[in-house]
Design a protein around this nucleic acid. Sequence first.
DNA 1: GTCTATAGGCGGATAGAC
DNA 2: GTCTATCCGCCTATAGAC
Lengths: 255, 255
Amino acid sequence: MNTVRGARARARVEVTAAIKDEARKQLAAEGAAKLSLRAVARELGMVSSALYRYFPSRDDLLTALIVDAYDAIGAAAEAALADVDAGARAGAAPAGAGAKAPSPACAGAGGTPTPRARWTAVCRAVRAWAVAHPHEYALIYGSPVPGYSAPQATVAPASRVAHVLLAVLRDAHRSEGVAPPPLAEGLRAEADRLAADLAPDLPPALAVAFVNAWCQLFGLISFEVFGHFAGVVEEAETFFTHSADRLGRELGLLR
Amino acid sequence: MNTVRGARARARVEVTAAIKDEARKQLAAEGAAKLSLRAVARELGMVSSALYRYFPSRDDLLTALIVDAYDAIGAAAEAALADVDAGARAGAAPAGAGAKAPSPACAGAGGTPTPRARWTAVCRAVRAWAVAHPHEYALIYGSPVPGYSAPQATVAPASRVAHVLLAVLRDAHRSEGVAPPPLAEGLRAEADRLAADLAPDLPPALAVAFVNAWCQLFGLISFEVFGHFAGVVEEAETFFTHSADRLGRELGLLR
DNA sequence: GTCTATAGGCGGATAGAC
DNA sequence: GTCTATCCGCCTATAGAC
């Protein structure tokens, strides 16, 4: 009976994965607004009503895709940070697991990576994921899907990238200090609340500067992914790396 | 015959405007991907085939909405710059035309507004338009509409905001100089091309810094409009104003 | 320019047999 | 869990009368 349950459960995850894979393909072709259970079923050789055993509604399928996308971009950010730290300790990249080439920016040196190198490595990984998965990126950082409101289940995955970036700041703050730009008068209250919510151990001025950098980071990525660089920026990756480094600098990561 | 032609032409623009207005409403309710000629016609008490006399296809209607949106946000930027300049000369706002309240940031002083005040005024106007028209904003700065590719006719309107911001930089560069951040090694080529394309009279380092600031400006706006500030930033306008001012500062607008 | 009618699709969701 | 059948809605686009 256990084996039967196991087999059924296995079949279920496999079919669920197949549905999500096909749905992702359609996301690319038609966009989130037109994601259709029927079309997914058709492509999978199933009948539409069968899908309702896996996802109770179209919106639930969409939620699953959104959570997956946030998790994927968050995992990419986490892996990049692990890589840059590991790459600095050993000359060679740890084979296997990561599936991410170590950032060239941190190659060579055997010491601890600088806070800015860590920051930039994470930013680059986030951009790389976005460029490699433009439609999933659009799903989570583009226009809201009309008529869909994100359930509570999406908020934790949605914050993974920010938490990685905050970890970089926190480490730098502890080890060598950070020099964020001064806090403007009118932002006192907002800054205190922000710091209390996001990172009680960081100075409020740094919390504000972080939120700023966080928005601007995704602004750079979105403009590239959404096509606003056409005819303007040609070497997008070089441009981005430079911009990310400047964001880190402006945050107060001096080194 | 002239009067007849005139009357017909007038009716035509009126109906065209009504169609676009209704389409904008539906944009808000259903999103660009689901914009439907039939639904527009239904709401207008017309029959769907009649719309084809005004817009040859759904995509043409979409193009018209996109051009209108770019023009509207561009006009808001231009008006804001005119206002801040006019407001600095006269104590009171010029009545009528602008339909935009003069930015409080520039009230009082009778002299020429500083470059940073001009920059920030334009940024604030762009944000204000976006917040007031979130769905039209999403249409032009959000996820690309699947299956739709923007025709050549959209590129000129799309650049109006950037041109206003560049005008602010150009004026500052001429009158009192600008101190952009130094240009990184690897960006030489990109910077030269960028400067040649966007503003041959500005230093390449400034052109790069400008593109940076331009992306980041829309990153701030997009995060607010697309709901990523929920539970994070509460006083979005104050936060934005501060951020825009910092962007100007980092561009090298010292004053 | 506007109408009716029509072609030839598409969608979400449910009931009930197996 | 998967199927058939079904309800009831939606869409773009064209033809041809008026």
